[in-house]
Each structure stands twice: as structure tokens, then as C-alpha cells.
Design a protein around this nucleic acid. Structure first.
Length: 422
RNA sequence: GUGCCUGUAGCUCAAUGGCAGAGCGCCUCACUGUGGAUGAGGAGGUUGAGGGUUCGAAACCCUUCAGGCACCCCA
């Protein structure tokens, strides 16, 4: 163990067991995305640092991106998020694309952060965006995508909720309290983390920004008001549409949802597990303007991103990840001895020609060992072709789950195996 | 990047300054044509790494690496 070279901090190895789970998750993401008519796309994992300089705030690039010079000296970043790439791609083809645009993507991202549970330096992220729609209908659709995804995974509304708020509403309400436009961004940032700080500390921080004590109490009343959404026409319309889309049970209003990214201008939302044990599962919102910073004409849209880590921790905790055995449809062909090895190989080849997944034991060995191997891999059937079978021109098929076995004529093998696997 | 906690066999953990152990898992055999059970054997550790204190360190001290918790930030 001592001489094994260590992996890079914050990265994960995906052994077959974990890889199978990752593939399962991707499949669920693909199903849901396609169900709503979204098309898959991807960009490069490497981008020039200028792409991020304009967008996504300095913090993300300066402090959280992996940045390095290439051999010519140009600064390259491992992508910490996809939105700037999306903006660039859309801007480059802006006059050729058909809007509204429905695109989704799943791929690796990197952020140079301190790893913790639910947060690694290399992670996978589902990004999905609807671009070219101004109205709140687009917001409703994306929230419906998220809710449908949860439903498809077997998650219930009492286990996970999508919490929604609206930036315009919050701006208006802060204005009403008398908080100046210059102070609002800082106040919003504090609202975003109200649940993370002790109440007294939070109060202190708010007052330190320059708010008056009665503004503080107004603010706290605001954040406790679960009916605040009724002050927003957009949110009223949104909830009505979510009802019509059949996903309202997964959504609730929360005035504390702000989102860190500056480019959100309307609806913002975050999905959380109801025990509060994990970090946010996904987050997104409405942006007025996706491509302006990279040189395109203004385009509104809405999108969200979901990392692979938290959702899998949650699903694992709830026991919602089905057992993934890659060999669950496989037939293991045993090799009795050297004399029968060739016929075992021929039989394996015949089955493979018919599209049956066949694992051929690589050498003659004790049958107990071969069966144990089949068992470990989770194979469905095992075949025995020993001297007796060769003499009779038969094969013994054993169902490893039921322990039942039968002898069939060699000619009937393929059909019988297919029946048993069906 | 800051503070705190934790690193002992593949996994979960004992051993609190005196010979590094258990359970599970793994391998072999009982089982010369049959897997999950049972029994008997066996392999596997420079106690994360490096240094220091000590007659003696898994344990105490320093450094470092990794993970976890909080901050920061966010998926």
C-alpha cells in the first residue's frame, strides 16, 4: 500500500460498482431531459480564462478554478461551470439556432475547493437550460423538469422540495423597507446564509451593513413570511402553472432562497432534502441575459445545475439506488477440462452471435470455483459442458437464482437460454 | 485559504507508553461434476508519511498528506 501513488486530492475513483451507479444516474438524467424534449450538447473541458473573466463573478475563477498556463503561456481553466460555455456556444450560432432552445448536458467540472462530504474537486454536473423565453412559463418548465426527475428516481415530496423565490420580489421588498440599491446585494448575500449563522451573529452582520434596527426587524418579518409570494404576479402565475404541470407538490415558497450567482434576475430555486442533512441538491434560476457578456444579442432564459455528489448521497441514504450488476443478464460458460474447452468456446461464440452476453471461464478449473465466480459477478445462468454432455450432445443449464438446472439438446440451447433470460 | 476533529489488515473497529488484535471479507481444504450454508486451516500491517521525545511509541510532541465538521463558496 505504501508505494501506491496517491490520487489527486478531491478526486474519486469509480470502480465498476460506483461506475454502474453513475451510469444509472446519467440514464435517469437522459430520460428526464428527453421527456421534455431537451437536446444533449457539450462543450470543452478546457476554456481560456477570459471566458470566465466577464461572467460568473471573479470569485469562481480567481479562487475556485483550476488554472494553468499551456505550453504557449496562455492561461487555461478547467471549466468550473458550464454557463459561460453555453453562452459562448449560443452567441456564436445565435442567428442559426432555433429558439426557444432546450439543451441539456452532463459532464465533469473542477473547482479548487476544500473537499468535504457532498463536495469534491472533480465532480459531474447536469446542466439544463431553456433559452429564448422571457416569461415565467419557462421557469415553470424547468422546475417541472426537476420535479419529474425526482419523481422518476422514486423521491417523494416529503423527502425533497424545490424551494422557490423571486429576485425582483426581493428587490422590491427590500426597497420598501428602505434599503438602498447599493446595500441590496450585500443584504441579499446575507439572506442567502441566514440559516448558517447563529441568529445574534446574523443580526450583528446586518446592522454592520448599515441597516437600522427597525429595518432589521422588518427584514426578519419579511423572511418569515411564507405568503410573501402573493405580492409577486410572477410567482402567482408560476405556482398556478406548476399546478397545471402536475408538480406543485414538489414545490414550496421560501423567501430565504436567493442564490449566490449575480446573473439571476427573476425566479430562483433550490432543491433540498427535507431532513436538512445534505447540501442543496440542485440550484438554478431565471436570467434576463445569457449572452450579452460574450458579445451576443440579449437572450433571456432559465436553467439549473445539479451535481452528482449530493443527489447520490441522498439516494444512497434513502435506499433508492437499485443494485447494479452488469452481469445480471449474463451466462457463464464453465470449462470442465482441457478436452471440452474448445466446445465450451464454440458454445460461447454461438450464444454471442445471438446477442447473449457470455462470460467464458478462462481456464479449466473446479466447478465449485467457477460457480462461485459466477455468483460473485451476479450472472444469471451457468452452462455445464462436461464429458457426459459431450457424449449425449447436450448442455446443462443452471439458473443461479433458483438453483434449478436442466439438460437440453445442443440444438435447442440458444432458444432455451433466450427464454430463460427473457 | 482559516479553525477544529480523525487516520491501526480490503471493511468496521480494539489495544492509552511494554510482544499489533478481533469480527466480517479474501484464499485453501473438507467437496476427484455444482455457487450464497457449515467446519478446519491460511494469507494480509514499517499503525497515512517523515522527524523528534523515551530503555521502549499505534499511543506523547513537531511537520506533512488525506478525510470529516464549521467558515468561505457552491453542485
Amino acid at each position: 500500500m505504501k508505494n501506491i501513488i496517491k490520487s489527486v486530492k478531491g478526486t474519486r475513483d469509480f470502480y465498476p460498482e460506483e461506475m454502474a451507479k453513475r451510469q444509472w444516474l446519467i440514464e435517469k438524467i437522459r430520460e428526464t431531459s428527453q421527456l421534455f424534449g431537451y437536446e444533449a450538447y457539450d462543450g470543452p473541458c478546457l476554456e481560456t480564462i477570459e471566458l470566465y473573466a466577464a461572467k460568473s463573478g471573479e470569485e469562481l475563477v480567481k479562487e475556485q478554478a483550476f488554472v494553468f498556463p499551456d505550453r504557449s503561456g496562455e492561461l487555461i481553466a478547467l471549466r468550473p461551470e458550464l454557463t459561460p460555455t453555453l453562452a459562448r456556444m449560443v452567441a456564436a450560432q445565435q442567428n442559426a439556432l432555433t429558439f426557444p432552445l432546450r439543451w441539456w448536458s452532463f459532464g465533469p467540472f473542477w473547482r479548487y475547493e476544500r473537499p468535504q462530504k457532498g463536495r469534491s474537486r472533480e465532480f459531474f454536473q447536469w446542466n439544463i437550460d431553456l433559452i429564448g423565453v422571457e416569461g415565467v412559463e419557462a421557469d415553470a418548465e424547468l422546475i417541472a423538469v426537476a420535479a419529474t426527475f425526482f419523481r422518476n428516481l422514486g423521491l417523494r415530496p416529503d423527502q425533497v422540495q424545490i424551494l422557490v423565490n423571486n429576485r425582483k420580489l426581493m428587490e422590491a421588498e427590500l426597497n420598501r423597507i428602505g434599503i438602498s440599491a447599493e446595500l441590496r446585494p450585500a443584504v441579499l448575500r446575507l439572506i442567502d446564509r441566514i440559516d448558517k449563522q447563529p441568529a445574534e451573529v446574523w443580526d450583528e452582520n446586518v446592522l454592520r451593513l448599515g441597516l437600522l434596527p427597525d429595518q432589521l426587524s422588518s427584514l426578519k418579518a419579511l423572511l418569515a413570511n411564507k405568503d410573501l409570494w402573493q405580492q409577486s404576479e410572477e410567482l402567482q402565475a408560476l405556482f398556478k402553472q406548476l399546478e397545471a404541470l402536475g408538480v406543485a407538490e414538489f414545490v414550496s415558497y421560501d423567501p430565504k432562497i436567493i442564490r449566490g450567482l449575480d446573473y439571476y434576475t427573476g425566479t430562483v430555486f433550490e432543491a433540498h432534502d427535507m431532513t436538512g442533512e445534505f447540501r442543496a441538491i440542485l440550484g438554478g434560476g431565471h436570467y434576463a441575459n445569457l449572452v450579452e457578456d460574450v458579445g451576443g444579442k440579449p437572450l433571456p432564459g432559465v436553467g439549473f445545475a445539479m451535481g452528482d455528489v449530493v443527489i447520490m448521497l441522498l439516494l444512497e441514504a434513502l435506499g433508492l439506488i437499485p443494485e447494479q450488476k452488469s452481469a445480471s443478464k449474463a451466462v457463464l460458460v464453465t470449462v470442465f477440462d482441457e478436452a471440452t474447452q474448445a466446445i465450451a468456446m464454440r458454445t460461447a461464440a454461438r450464444l454471442r452471435d445471438e446477442g447473449v452476453q457470455v462470460i467464458l471461464y478462462p481456464e479449466a478449473d473446479k466447478l465449485s470455483k467457477q460457480l462461485k465466480y459466477a455468483d460473485r459477478l451476479g450472472a444469471r445462468l451457468a452452462l455445464f459442458i462436461g464429458p457426459d454432455e459431450v457424449a449425449e450432445n447436450t448442455v446443462v443449464i443452471k439458473d443461479l437464482a433458483t438453483h434449478q438446472q436442466e439438460s437440453v439438446p445442443m440444438q435447442a440451447l440458444v432458444e432455451r437460454v433466450k427464454n430463460l433470460l427473457a
